[in-house]
Design a protein around this nucleic acid. Structure first.
Lengths: 255, 255
DNA sequence: CATGCATAACTAGTATACAAGATATTTTAC
DNA sequence: GTAAAATATCTTGTATACTAGTTATGCATG
């Protein structure tokens, strides 16, 4: 901390530095380019495999193996690992190994509460100021859910499910809050994939989404919030049931 | 993604691998050790400098310079940079430079809304189930705030301020939600340090904290939430005022 | 055969070297 | 003198080599 107090003296270099407070001019333009770095690719693949429980809790993630699989060096792989560790999806044991993290039950409970709180403000604000076009778009998402439900495409349905919630947040003017919810969702989603049979749930989800949207269209914020809460409450955890089934997959003692 | 589908075949190696689902035995023990990696140190220093606006928005962060200052290599410095980029505290322009991010006003507004929503569930739950000792501890924190207010120690007061909110979350049984709030707080705090004169505010904050705790002690959840909301609303942004003062410090167009 | 210990092999953390692109400076053409 | 092209020198992204610590293996010893 104190190290930072003495600002660097740039006198030693005669070369003129770029003036402070001036990022490169091309910056906004280049924002459009989607130059996905290798670390991003590895991160996404691993993250998806973890939340899909393709890689179960406790599974080792060996850097060398991944570098060979992708044909890249350790550096980007390591970046991906660090990002996953940040999100508590993996545990890194220095000089020992990196493993898919067990599902922390305490974190799970809080994640559900937090999500409910954030979705509530989104749906309340969305009810107040959603435009007609936004409501129609949400109707379209629900219709797509119906179609995917009929087709039985779980993965696509899951994406549509997220699209509905994202749409509600966007209608409320809170796209950034949806980003927060997505981060929270990672842990919960892993639990959901592990424990809930997806079969019969799709129709129920469609009905619940429809109830939320219906309340929004009637401008009844309290009803919309209520519908959203009861929808999200379906995620509520019944830990005891799974405690014995997969004892190695969960972490019960806090921290 | 498809790359991950074929699980590694370990036949080629005769050497017996550690069994899956079994992290190292010493893991829980070593958890106590606080082996802070260099990247953590750099991260904390830079993060603090950014939120304190010691490093103003737009300031360049040159990896090489930091490596020389700390006497370490680029690798841990780079890790710190990536973490800061993740939190939108810096912008990385590949092959060009890394700069302290401008304060994104849109994100700021949403951050305040999100924080209020999360603090609300914390204080409501805390009112319902705080133990006597937890309430006494919160009283102690407020008393400490009074002392630090009198002493005029802004930094320590600031820490105590956080301790109060963390204590409320802990009393509600949601320490993880406080962790989320802390992440959200980074952006808002930077704005606060930049715009609000801290002098007269300390006494007001103490009074507001006391009002929250008073309602909690009376078991009046609604009043506690109301007090907390009005406390947090003091952060509300008056962008127009500062738009002209430091136009370079803020980012107005979304994303 | 069981147990303790030396050793080998593997891990993540770090340092360094190289590559590719962007900016600043200099040079050159007119 | 001005503008544009060439060049030098920055920057971050990536690969690789090395270090230090941990776990597995196998041998020695009883």
């Amino acid at each position: 901390m104190a190290v930072l107090d003495k600002r660097p003296s740039a006198e030693m270099k005669v070369r003129k530095q770029r003036a402070p407070n001036s990022p490169p001019r091309g910056a906004p333009d280049r924002h459009a380019k989607k130059a996905m770095r290798n670390s991003e690719i590895v991160y996404r693949d691993l993250r998806d495999a973890i939340v899909n429980v393709t890689l179960p809790p406790g599974a080792p993630l060996v850097e060398k193996e991944i570098t060979e699989r992708y044909g890249i060096s350790r550096t980007p792989v390591r970046e991906a690992m660090l990002k996953l560790a940040e999100e508590r999806l993996v545990d890194v044991f220095p000089k020992s190994g990196t493993f898919v993290a067990r599902i922390p039950v305490a974190v799970l409970q809080e994640a559900i509460v937090a999500r409910r709180a954030l979705e509530e403000v989104c749906v309340r604000e969305a009810t107040a100021k959603a435009t007609k076009s936004q409501l129609m778009q949400l109707q379209a998402v629900i219709q797509r859910e119906r179609e995917l439900c009929a087709a039985g495409d779980e993965q696509a349905f899951h994406d549509a499910d997220n699209a509905f919630h994202a749409g509600v947040a966007a209608a409320g003017g809170y796209p950034g809050i949806w980003t927060m919810i997505e981060k929270i969702r990672l842990q919960v989603e892993r639990y959901r994939r592990l424990t809930l049979p997806q079969k019969g749930r799709m129709k129920l989800i469609v009905a619940e989404h429809a109830a939320v949207l219906d309340a929004m269209e009637h401008g009844d914020a309290d009803a919309a919030v209520e519908a959203m809460n009861s929808h999200l409450n379906k995620l509520q955890i019944d830990i005891e049931t799974f405690r014995d089934l997969w004892p190695d997959y969960f972490l019960f003692d806090k921290k």
